[in-house]
Design a binder for these strands. Structure first.
Lengths: 342, 342
DNA sequence: CTGAAAGCGCTTACAG
DNA sequence: CTGAAAGCGCTTACAG
């Protein structure tokens, strides 16, 4: 930049007061300030078009009014929705947000955490991979404000915001059974990296089947990387006793299953019931429209942000809690046998 | 935080050298440093688990290695894609990114710009609303690094990355004509806030019709807020001479048109051809699958980031350029009369 | 009611 | 090859 910006000293000189007084003015502490002084400073600020430098302020105050968000995978629509809620909430409270996408890669996650700490963020909201436990532990030890979202890490005392995954699967299984489907399969992206929601969704699926006295068939459970899911679907329907319904564990699994179904003439609804976790933009438009289990993503993001803000207010710090959010069933046509493809 | 972090002074004491020398070490200037000194500092850094404070560094260097991105509306899939490209590119070059969503609201945009400047971002990538011209002008006057994306602001000398919107419409119109559709309508979200791409898309539509010697019928042009687009579609098909094809100007317009079509039994493809600007996730899955005009969003984001990085390298600064990116036609079934709904 | 001084944690030109 | 000193632009306890 060619022209250098005015500093607090310039304003002080221009208004014929000290830097201290200008600082008081900027921080709206008018208690002991003469009306006339305030006006002089106001004028100087206006005339110089002075903008305070937050970096200097942050250094002195040891607070940047910035928080870091590390999402596991920004390609999930859930992530985008949560991010918007977090940003809105934090922004309303004068905080900025730095978003990072770890791409489900623990090494990337670690690097982002370190960068964000170097930048002195005041707190962190993380969709944790389970690989950086020691790093998290060291943050918790120094009482650094941190909130986990979507996933927990066992053994760590951290406020955590999650979906009630078991209830989600309970809802899905129940809805399919009520609508006359009996052989229910479940498809999720890989369980390999120990991602908690996926594990909970599969175990919730099993529990729901038990509760409704249905047999559990291991061959009805398909967990694999997205690129193999279409193959997994094929295996499902080549079984001697193929399923008559499918629950997809998230939007990426859904896309793969829909591709398989459309390429192989699987009639969703009439032949194979479908319920998917996560609301998607085209749910209404799909033919048949998609019955979904929606996460209250906006509320979840807002809660995570609020937990952090409470910490800054010094309201709490003692114990940490798990906040489970209730999923809701949005009934459309993909889990109804009478659904007619037009 | 309870335990205070070690500073460069702590490291200096621990290693029995001066702060200057530690700073040299941290900045990898080993030219004049004794091997033994380097090792001592290395050890001290390790033992204290020292992490440099970027805020202090930024204050001194007057550079935060952070850039701000202000998108007009993060709900467009184009925005998300561009953001990912920008983040990846900047991250590879050691820069952080702060994302802000102006919600197509000039007042919000202004507030974000001011906040980002106070935080001393090194540059800005903006999808500009046309309402903060004076603010942009003042930034350009002091040679502040800024790049516009998706939209230009006339009269300002700023590097700008945009789609070749006219070519996009040319492709869409041509494809529809080739496939036997003759009465082509266009639907875009409102032209009201003077959003350049929408304006260019409508004028590109007209130019393309002229080029192919087709009549221009003003009643075939529907530009309105998303919530009114379904009504707009209804008006189109209630015309004495209704269109036999529709071009939707972006993903939001597409959604509204698809809702209208599905609720009113409009058979896409066989009855009404459809081409949409912007690739969408479910294009392949829709029935019939959607013929789209894709923006090279990754390349566009990357270019915007690179233009900024070049400025930091001092490579250029003189004149500013407009970079137009070429759209590509992705042929699927929604613009083919023979397309069969399954 | 207002100002002088110290300090936040770094970097760098300069001296030796 | 290394250190003392100044300074980036703020805030705040303290003195008057």
């Amino acid at each position: 930049m060619s022209i250098k910006k005015p500093t607090i000293s310039d304003v002080a000189k221009h208004a014929n007061v000290s830097k201290s007084t200008v600082s008081q003015f900027l921080n709206r502490r008018f208690d002991y300030m003469r009306e006339e002084t305030r006006e002089r400073i106001e004028k100087a600020v206006r005339e110089l078009n002075y903008q305070p430098n937050s970096v200097a302020r942050s250094l002195k105050l040891k607070s940047t009014a910035t928080i870091g968000v590390i999402v596991a995978n920004i390609l999930h629509s859930f992530s985008t929705q949560v991010i918007r809620a977090i940003e809105d909430t934090l922004n309303d409270n004068g905080f900025s947000t730095i978003i990072c996408n770890a791409d489900d890669n623990p090494a990337k996650e670690q690097k982002y955490i370190e960068t964000l700490l170097a930048r002195q963020v005041d707190g962190l909201i993380v969709f944790p991979t389970s690989a950086n436990i020691e790093l998290y532990k060291s943050l918790i030890d120094i009482d650094f404000p941190i909130v986990f979202l979507d996933r927990y890490v066992s053994g760590l005392s951290v406020d955590t915001v999650m979906l009630d995954n078991e209830q989600a699967l309970q809802l899905a299984v129940e809805h399919l059974l009520i609508n006359g489907y009996h052989d229910i399969a479940v498809m999720t992206t890989s369980l390999e990296p120990h991602v908690i929601p996926r594990i909970e969704r599969v175990s919730g699926y099993k529990q729901a089947l038990e509760r409704f006295s249905q047999p559990i068939r291991e061959e009805y459970i398909k967990s694999m990387e997205p690129e193999y899911l279409q193959k997994g679907a094929a295996e499902l329907f080549e079984l001697e006793h193929p399923p008559d319904a499918v629950i997809t564990g998230n939007d990426l699994a859904l896309m793969e299953f829909l591709k398989y179904a459309s390429q192989n003439g699987v009639k969703i609804g009439s032949e194979v019931g479908l319920v998917t976790i996560d609301e998607v933009a085209f749910a209404e438009l799909n033919n048949p429209s998609l019955t979904t289990i929606a996460q209250p993503s906006f509320e979840m993001g807002k809660k995570a942000a609020s937990l952090l803000l409470e910490r800054f207010d010094g309201k709490k710090s003692a114990e940490s809690n798990m906040y489970r959010f209730t999923p809701s069933l949005i009934v459309r046509k993909s889990a109804e046998k009478a659904s007619v493809s037009s």
